[in-house]
Protein backbone atom coordinates (compact mmCIF):
# COMPACT_ATOMS: atom_id res chain seq x y z
CA UNK A 1 0.00 0.00 0.00
CA UNK A 2 2.79 2.38 0.91
CA UNK A 3 4.61 1.67 -2.32
CA UNK A 4 1.46 2.35 -4.32
CA UNK A 5 0.91 5.54 -2.39
CA UNK A 6 4.42 6.74 -3.22
CA UNK A 7 3.90 5.93 -6.87
CA UNK A 8 0.59 7.76 -6.98
CA UNK A 9 2.07 10.72 -5.17
CA UNK A 10 4.94 10.94 -7.62
CA UNK A 11 2.62 10.62 -10.60
CA UNK A 12 0.33 13.42 -9.53
CA UNK A 13 3.25 15.70 -8.72
CA UNK A 14 4.92 15.07 -12.03
CA UNK A 15 1.80 16.21 -13.82
CA UNK A 16 0.98 19.07 -11.50
CA UNK A 17 4.07 21.20 -10.97
CA UNK A 18 4.47 22.70 -14.44
CA UNK A 19 0.96 23.88 -15.04
CA UNK A 20 0.51 25.18 -11.51
CA UNK A 21 3.06 27.97 -11.90
CA UNK A 22 1.77 29.17 -15.28
CA UNK A 23 -1.86 29.17 -14.32
CA UNK A 24 -1.29 31.06 -11.07
CA UNK A 25 0.65 33.78 -12.91
CA UNK A 26 -2.06 34.06 -15.53
CA UNK A 27 -4.76 34.22 -12.89
CA UNK A 28 -2.89 36.96 -11.06
CA UNK A 29 -2.48 38.88 -14.29
CA UNK A 30 -6.14 38.39 -15.19
CA UNK A 31 -7.34 39.58 -11.80
CA UNK A 32 -5.08 42.62 -12.01
CA UNK A 33 -6.33 43.35 -15.49
CA UNK A 34 -9.92 43.11 -14.30
CA UNK A 35 -9.27 45.47 -11.39
CA UNK A 36 -7.59 47.93 -13.75
CA UNK A 37 -10.59 47.74 -16.02
CA UNK A 38 -12.95 48.46 -13.12
CA UNK A 39 -10.92 51.23 -11.51
CA UNK A 40 -9.26 52.72 -14.58
CA UNK A 41 -5.79 52.38 -13.10
CA UNK A 42 -4.15 50.56 -15.95
CA UNK A 43 -1.54 49.13 -15.80
CA UNK A 44 -0.72 49.15 -12.09
CA UNK A 45 -2.92 46.31 -10.88
CA UNK A 46 -1.91 44.22 -13.87
CA UNK A 47 1.75 44.54 -12.85
CA UNK A 48 0.97 43.82 -9.22
CA UNK A 49 -1.23 40.88 -10.27
CA UNK A 50 1.56 39.31 -12.33
CA UNK A 51 3.97 39.50 -9.41
CA UNK A 52 1.45 38.20 -6.87
CA UNK A 53 0.38 35.49 -9.29
CA UNK A 54 3.94 34.34 -9.82
CA UNK A 55 4.44 34.33 -6.06
CA UNK A 56 1.26 32.33 -5.57
CA UNK A 57 2.41 29.84 -8.20
CA UNK A 58 5.79 29.50 -6.56
CA UNK A 59 4.08 29.05 -3.21
CA UNK A 60 1.83 26.33 -4.63
CA UNK A 61 4.79 24.51 -6.13
CA UNK A 62 6.69 24.88 -2.86
CA UNK A 63 3.77 23.40 -0.92
CA UNK A 64 3.42 20.44 -3.26
CA UNK A 65 7.15 19.79 -3.03
CA UNK A 66 6.99 20.07 0.75
CA UNK A 67 4.14 17.56 0.92
CA UNK A 68 6.16 15.25 -1.24
CA UNK A 69 9.19 15.54 1.01
CA UNK A 70 7.13 14.70 4.09
CA UNK A 71 5.69 11.73 2.27
CA UNK A 72 9.17 10.66 1.22
CA UNK A 73 10.56 10.81 4.76
CA UNK A 74 7.61 8.80 5.97
CA UNK A 75 8.45 6.19 3.37
CA UNK A 76 12.08 6.12 4.42
CA UNK A 77 11.13 5.67 8.03
CA UNK A 78 9.02 2.71 7.08
CA UNK A 79 11.86 1.20 5.09
CA UNK A 80 14.24 1.61 7.98
CA UNK A 81 11.96 -0.23 10.35
CA UNK A 82 11.52 -3.04 7.87
CA UNK A 83 14.69 -5.03 8.70
CA UNK A 84 13.37 -5.44 12.22
CA UNK A 85 10.34 -7.10 10.79
CA UNK A 86 10.84 -10.86 10.98
CA UNK A 87 8.89 -11.36 7.77
CA UNK A 88 11.31 -9.05 6.01
CA UNK A 89 14.29 -11.20 6.95
CA UNK A 90 13.00 -14.25 5.17
CA UNK A 91 13.03 -12.43 1.86
Amino acid sequence: MNEGSGFRQGLSIAFRLGIELTVATLVGAGMGYGLDHLLGTRPWFLVLGVFLGATAGALNVYRIAQDFQVEDEGGEKKDRSDPEDPSGKSD
Binding site: A24, M31, T55, A56, G57
Partner: peptide, 24 residues
Protein backbone atom coordinates in the same frame (compact mmCIF):
# COMPACT_ATOMS: atom_id res chain seq x y z
CA UNK B 1 -2.08 42.04 3.55
CA UNK B 2 0.34 40.60 1.03
CA UNK B 3 -0.54 36.99 1.74
CA UNK B 4 -4.29 37.37 1.34
CA UNK B 5 -4.22 38.34 -2.38
CA UNK B 6 -1.59 35.66 -3.00
CA UNK B 7 -3.76 33.03 -1.32
CA UNK B 8 -6.83 34.22 -3.24
CA UNK B 9 -4.93 33.92 -6.50
CA UNK B 10 -3.64 30.47 -5.58
CA UNK B 11 -7.16 29.34 -4.66
CA UNK B 12 -8.64 30.67 -7.90
CA UNK B 13 -5.77 29.13 -9.83
CA UNK B 14 -6.65 25.68 -8.55
CA UNK B 15 -9.84 25.00 -10.53
CA UNK B 16 -8.34 26.67 -13.58
CA UNK B 17 -5.21 24.53 -13.55
CA UNK B 18 -7.40 21.53 -12.84
CA UNK B 19 -9.57 22.10 -15.91
CA UNK B 20 -6.76 23.27 -18.19
CA UNK B 21 -4.66 20.21 -17.39
CA UNK B 22 -7.37 17.74 -18.37
CA UNK B 23 -8.44 19.70 -21.43
CA UNK B 24 -4.87 20.22 -22.66
Amino acid sequence: PLMIPIEIISMVARPISLSVRLFA
